[in-house]
Design a protein around this nucleic acid. Structure first.
Ligand SMILES: [Zn+2]
Ligand SMILES: [Zn+2]
Ligand SMILES: [Zn+2]
Ligand SMILES: [Zn+2]
Lengths: 152, 152
DNA sequence: TCGGGGATGTTATGGTATAACAAGACGTCT
DNA sequence: AGACGTCTTGTTATACCATAACATCCCCGA
């Protein structure tokens, strides 16, 4: 169900994700402005985790602002809307593989190519009595099939 | 089984952890040198996650080197030995609550007081066929019992 | 047409982490 | 004892990640 590590029609993959993002924003009355939209596209073009400064560099090439807050603001918006996830272990961002409804997820993060796959998070995660869980960070770091085989 | 959020004899708690650390290093032929030992003590004094620069400041007060690599090297050593864990979501470090045998764990991280409790990690965590998991990051962020009640 | 709120842009600054190199500590072999 | 190799500690310098604060612009409704 996760496509990041499988070959697939990525043009369609991107187009669908972008359409879902537009729909989600429209429904919520949020504005998917040009910087925000382009930021999402940049992340969708790879299934990889990109640092904010990587995103910023591409935004600058496209004529948007060139200072860090430009990228961070667009990324924050997209994260709030559930269209992008932050990978804590990499301090990086990845486009959501299943936009449309904000959700938590577990991530499989390849340390070599930085591609990221998304898996459903189990209902049950460890806790202790009295502790109020607000956010769950579940990230599996390792090697994707291609990188194990030296293909990529 | 996790003591971070419960009242306990913390002097004993610290002493035992330090003794376990000494034993573990001795057994492995690793050297728990003064900086390394003091770094571990600093983390043990709170059950809290401390940033590398917080640790560094205390090391400097104690007459050790004052530059970032001093703290980062000691922390790296302790993490390699399984005596300290890195909390990715905070970019911070916490002393292991169960030293003696290197292990993975799930962490319950209070966003208010930064105390951290350690829970066993389920055998089964999400993955996808062909992906080789090397490290599992499982961190629950939220509020500890005290912080929920405004006690702390 | 005149606000007002949100979005974009800038400058400046702060927090986190590591590369590269010099000097010291320490066991070991002769 | 003395020479050697290895590990450890310390430094300087720099790179990377992130946000505060403020100016400007744009769009929409009164
Ligand atoms: Zn795709
Ligand atoms: Zn890979
Ligand atoms: Zn304790
Ligand atoms: Zn707390």
């Amino acid at each position: 169900m996760t496509r990041a590590f499988d070959s697939h029609d990525h043009a369609t993959c991107r187009r669908e994700a972008l359409a879902a993002a537009e729909a989600a924003c429209a429904e919520r009355g949020e504005r998917l402005t040009p910087v925000r939209r382009r930021t999402l596209e940049i992340l969708l073009e790879s299934h990889r985790a990109l640092g904010a400064y990587d995103v910023l560099e591409r935004l600058r090439e496209d004529g948007f602002g060139s200072q860090p807050p430009v990228a961070y603001r667009a990324l924050s918006f997209l994260v709030e809307q559930g269209l992008v996830h932050r990978i804590e272990a990499l301090q990086a961002f990845v486009a959501c593989a299943r936009p449309g409804k904000t959700h938590e997820a577990a991530f499989l993060v390849c340390r070599r190519c930085r591609r990221v796959a998304e898996e459903p998070l189990p209902d049950q995660t460890p806790t202790t009595p009295g502790f109020a869980v607000e956010r769950r960070v579940v990230e599996m770091q390792g090697l994707c099939p291609d990188c194990r085989n030296g293909k990529a």
